[in-house]
Amino acid sequence: MSMLRLDGVTVRFGERAVLDAVDLDVAEHETVCVLGPSGSGKSTLLRVVAGLQRPDAGRVFLAGEDQGGVPVHKRGVGLMFQDHQLFPQRDVAGNVGFGLRMRRAGRAETERRVAALLDLVGLPNAQRRAVAALSGGEQQRVALARALAPEPRLLMLDEPLGQLDRGLRERLVAELRELFRRLGTTVLAVTHDQGEAFALADRVVVMRDGRIAQSGTPLEVWQRPASEFVARFLGFDNIVEATVSGERADTVWGRVPVPAGTPGGVCRVLVRPAGVRLGAVGEGVPCGVVSRTFRGDHVAVRLRPDAGPELEAVCRLGEAPEPAARVGVRFDAAEVVVLR
């Protein structure tokens, strides 16, 4: 069942279409992350669903019901923002229970629900703590508990972990995914952080200039970006013009193998860094090593071919060649994507 459906939603600011005829479905219990650079329209999309921004065209449906004219507080959605927006004058319990009081829930029910949610987000017995005394991660957990308290049919997250340091962000992403799975929550999140989106989402939607550039599972989008824009947004730079003939593509780097069945003709090809295989000089495309960067479990190596743009390769620790060394490069067809 579709919990959320956008049908041709358009929002214009002056002459500019911030959202341009966007169609989107989010299934019940699904977590969808909308990913894109600044100005791509992702936050405006969230505001339209919440009722904070009226579309110039198109319709929004929640559980099959048209939301045209339905005010924010009657849509049954929860919102969690990057800056938390907690009430500093209220303690933790006062923040978490705010939505329940707006629904006129009884005191005993509110106290039970607040205690249960604080346990759920890893802050047991924190009801009387002051907001100002909480760490950034703790404030994030309080904001999440507050958003979940009224049991929204759709939870919306706007850059939910953007202000946290990397280590805490990675831990919270894993916790959020498990929490949403246990609760069966339907989630629509927006972020510019691809790592966050890929770790959290069942499905990733990449936006560009107010339109959806690609939608798919994290694995689908990562393995098969639909365009050069998506590929470069995901951080892939090994892209050149090519002409495909059979199972090879002629490029400025020489002949690059392509997956079997690739249609012939002019295109762009992406070689993921994992598909750039290093060997001895004379084995493949001659390259000089420009630099190498330690990335934790691997080393990223920048290469300068004798012709064409630089390449990035990845090597296991201890196997990366020294800067200024000469190497030969071959390409693995399994890591080549043809972009049309």
Rank of each mutant, 00 (worst) to 15 (best):
M1R: 14
S2T: 14
M3C: 12
L4N: 04
G8D: 04
V11F: 06
F13G: 09
G14N: 10
R16Y: 06
A17S: 15
V18W: 03
D20W: 06
A21Y: 00
V22H: 08
L24S: 07
L24N: 06
L24D: 09
S38G: 12
G39L: 03
S40I: 02
G41V: 08
L46V: 08
L46E: 09
G51R: 06
G51S: 05
A57Q: 12
G58E: 11
V60E: 08
A63H: 07
E65C: 01
G69W: 10
V70S: 04
V72T: 13
V77P: 00
L79F: 15
D83I: 00
H84K: 11
H84W: 14
Q85E: 09
F87Q: 07
F87N: 08
D91S: 02
V92Q: 05
V96S: 04
G97A: 02
R104G: 00
A105Q: 11
A105E: 14
G106P: 00
R107T: 09
A108D: 14
T110A: 05
T110I: 12
V114H: 05
A115F: 02
G122R: 13
L123F: 09
N125L: 03
N125A: 15
R129P: 02
V131L: 03
V131C: 08
V142I: 13
P152W: 01
R153S: 14
L155C: 04
E159H: 08
R166H: 10
G167M: 01
G167C: 00
L168V: 13
E170K: 13
E170H: 13
L172W: 05
L172Y: 05
A174D: 13
E175N: 05
E175V: 12
L176G: 09
E178Y: 00
L179P: 09
F180L: 09
F180A: 12
R181A: 15
R182D: 12
L188C: 05
V190K: 07
T191I: 05
T191E: 12
G195K: 06
A197C: 10
L200F: 11
R208C: 08
D209G: 09
Q214S: 13
G216L: 11
L219E: 15
L219D: 15
L219N: 12
L219H: 14
W222Y: 15
Q223R: 15
E228C: 06
A231R: 13
R232F: 04
L234W: 11
L234R: 10
G235E: 10
F236T: 09
V240W: 02
E241P: 00
E241D: 14
T243F: 06
T243N: 10
E247N: 14
R248Q: 15
R248W: 12
A249I: 06
D250Y: 00
D250C: 01
T251I: 04
T251N: 02
V256H: 04
P257G: 10
P259D: 11
A260Q: 15
T262W: 09
R272V: 01
V276P: 08
R277L: 15
L278K: 12
L278D: 06
A280Y: 00
V289F: 06
R292H: 13
F294E: 14
R295H: 11
G296V: 05
D297T: 15
V299D: 11
L303K: 03
D306E: 13
A307D: 05
P309N: 06
E312L: 14
A313G: 07
C315Y: 02
P321Y: 06
R326H: 13
R326A: 14
G328V: 13
D332P: 08
V337N: 12
V337E: 09
L339I: 02
L339G: 06
